[in-house]
Simulated assay, not measured.
Amino acid sequence: MSTMGHAAGGGVRGVADGVKYFFQGVGWVSRHPRQWLFGLVPALIAFVLYVAALAVLGTYAGDLAAWATPFADGWSETARDLLRVLIGVVVFGLGLVLALVTFTAVTLTIGGPFYEKLSERVEDDLGGGPTAPDIPLWRSITRSVRDSLVTLGWVLVFTIPLFFLGFVPVIGQTVVPVLGAAVSGFFLTVELTTIAMERRSMTRRTRFAALRAAKSPALGFGILTFLLFLIPFLAVLAMPAAIAGATFLVRARYSPPSGNL
């Protein structure tokens, strides 16, 4: 595997490189508006599904809180309602966190063929890239879902404790948001670079190892993307640029094919 830029990829310079890759993606889709529109379709579908799911969760969060706290039925009305409101807020908050950390994976699963084609066109425009392995569609989807579930598991290992630490005074308003953005950003980069890395025959373990070895660019790219994805509907608009930017990142650092599927 190419390690180009790894030695110089740490610290502030590495973070700046990661940010640069994202804006290169923005520049590419702005020059190819049809590709941007092409990449909006699966992101828009996923966005509508998530909005509907969160609306249902918000509607029934109170009922879930009441179901989970039968022991509070004999409490005073004020204490009972306060407890259930707090639990309802936590339930909805967890649902929102889960939506944020799974949106990209679900969008990529829905729009796999869209984003594979978009990423290929970025590489073709830059002089060509490795030929994607000839894998049956069912196997590609199965592997994508499996890898996304593994990534989601690692994300939850970090984000669930951070979510509850967010209620701790001072730490929850200072340290936790920074750590949360770093964790979410890194794993967002893992998801977004999957298409271009798989084209280079890089397995999930190889991809993780490669990005851990270049944490600064991965964090620079991922944190910026994560912060933009927090803005309602901007995740939809930015997804094609994020895919293009991830392709720039992979092409710059891992251009030769490597590993085996």
Rank of each mutant, 00 (worst) to 15 (best):
Y50V: 13
D125C: 03
L230E: 05
A72W: 14
D63C: 12
L94Q: 12
G5H: 14
L162Q: 09
P256C: 05
I141P: 02
G259N: 04
I243C: 01
T203Q: 09
A52D: 00
L96N: 01
L100N: 10
A238N: 08
A244D: 02
A209P: 05
P217Q: 10
V176Q: 10
W138C: 12
P217F: 02
L149P: 00
P113E: 13
A79W: 09
L152H: 03
L94D: 10
A66S: 15
A132R: 03
T107E: 00
V150F: 12
D81L: 13
I160C: 05
L234K: 00
S2E: 13
T3S: 14
A79F: 05
R84S: 10
G10S: 14
F167T: 04
E77Y: 13
F186E: 05
L54I: 04
Y60F: 11
G58I: 05
L219E: 00
D81C: 04
L165W: 12
A214T: 03
T78I: 12
L156M: 07
L149A: 08
S30V: 10
V41K: 01
F248Y: 15
D73N: 13
A52F: 04
V85D: 13
F187E: 08
W36D: 00
S184A: 14
R139G: 05
P133G: 05
V90N: 06
T174P: 01
L156Q: 12
A16N: 05
L83D: 09
A66K: 01
V85Q: 12
L230R: 08
L188Y: 13
M239F: 15
A181R: 01
A246Y: 13
P113W: 11
G9C: 11
V97Q: 12
L156I: 07
Y60H: 06
I87G: 03
F103T: 08
A182S: 04
L192G: 02
A46F: 02
R205C: 00
R207D: 10
A105K: 07
G128L: 06
G11Q: 04
A66V: 04
T189G: 04
T194R: 08
L108G: 03
F226I: 01
A79Q: 07
G18Q: 07
A209R: 15
K215Q: 07
A244M: 07
S184K: 15
A218C: 12
A242S: 09
Y254P: 00
R207T: 09
L44E: 05
L118A: 06
P169K: 07
F23E: 14
G259D: 12
V155H: 00
G127T: 06
V183K: 10
L156H: 11
L261T: 12
G153M: 05
A8S: 14
K20H: 04
R200S: 03
